[in-house]
Computed example of a mutant assay.
Amino acid sequence: MTADIGLFEAIYTARSLRHFKSDPVPQELITKVLDAAIRASSGGNTQHWTFIVVRDAEKRRQIAAIYRKASDYASAVYAARPKPDHLTDEQFAQFLANSGYLWDHMADAPAILVPCLTKREPPKRASLPDVVQARYADHLANVQRISGSSIYPAIQNIILACRGLGLGTVITTNHILYENEVKAVLGIPDNVATFALMPIGYPTRKYGPLTRKPVSDVTYADSWGTPWPDATGN
Score class of each variant (00 low, 15 high):
residue 179 E to D: 15
residue 179 E to F: 00
residue 180 N to G: 00
residue 180 N to M: 09
residue 180 N to Y: 13
residue 180 N to V: 00
residue 181 E to Q: 15
residue 181 E to R: 13
residue 181 E to V: 05
residue 181 E to T: 05
residue 181 E to G: 08
residue 181 E to M: 12
residue 182 V to Y: 01
residue 182 V to H: 05
residue 183 K to L: 10
residue 183 K to W: 09
residue 183 K to V: 01
residue 183 K to Q: 12
residue 184 A to Y: 04
residue 184 A to K: 15
residue 184 A to W: 05
residue 184 A to L: 05
residue 184 A to V: 07
residue 184 A to S: 15
residue 185 V to Q: 09
residue 185 V to G: 07
residue 186 L to D: 03
residue 186 L to V: 07
residue 186 L to F: 05
residue 187 G to S: 08
residue 188 I to W: 07
residue 188 I to E: 05
residue 188 I to K: 04
residue 189 P to W: 12
residue 189 P to S: 05
residue 189 P to R: 10
residue 189 P to N: 06
residue 189 P to T: 04
residue 190 D to G: 01
residue 190 D to Y: 04
residue 190 D to Q: 14
residue 190 D to S: 12
residue 190 D to K: 13
residue 190 D to L: 01
residue 191 N to W: 06
residue 191 N to T: 02
residue 191 N to D: 15
residue 191 N to I: 00
residue 191 N to V: 00
residue 192 V to M: 12
residue 192 V to W: 10
residue 192 V to L: 13
residue 193 A to L: 14
residue 193 A to H: 14
residue 194 T to C: 11
residue 194 T to L: 14
residue 194 T to V: 13
residue 194 T to P: 02
residue 195 F to L: 14
residue 195 F to A: 06
residue 196 A to Q: 08
residue 197 L to E: 06
residue 197 L to Y: 02
residue 197 L to K: 02
residue 197 L to H: 04
residue 197 L to N: 02
residue 197 L to I: 12
residue 198 M to R: 02
residue 198 M to V: 05
residue 198 M to K: 04
residue 199 P to I: 00
residue 199 P to D: 07
residue 199 P to A: 01
residue 200 I to P: 04
residue 200 I to V: 15
residue 200 I to K: 03
residue 201 G to S: 07
residue 202 Y to M: 01
residue 202 Y to W: 15
residue 202 Y to E: 10
residue 202 Y to T: 02
residue 203 P to H: 13
residue 204 T to R: 14
residue 204 T to S: 14
residue 205 R to V: 13
residue 205 R to Q: 15
residue 205 R to P: 00
residue 205 R to I: 06
residue 206 K to W: 00
residue 206 K to N: 14
residue 206 K to R: 14
residue 207 Y to T: 03
residue 207 Y to L: 06
residue 207 Y to K: 06
residue 207 Y to P: 00
residue 208 G to I: 06
residue 208 G to L: 07
residue 208 G to M: 07
residue 208 G to K: 07
residue 208 G to D: 08
residue 208 G to A: 09
residue 209 P to Q: 00
residue 209 P to R: 01
residue 209 P to T: 00
residue 209 P to F: 02
residue 209 P to C: 01
residue 210 L to F: 12
residue 210 L to I: 14
residue 210 L to T: 11
residue 211 T to F: 04
residue 211 T to Q: 14
residue 211 T to C: 01
residue 211 T to W: 10
residue 212 R to L: 12
residue 212 R to M: 11
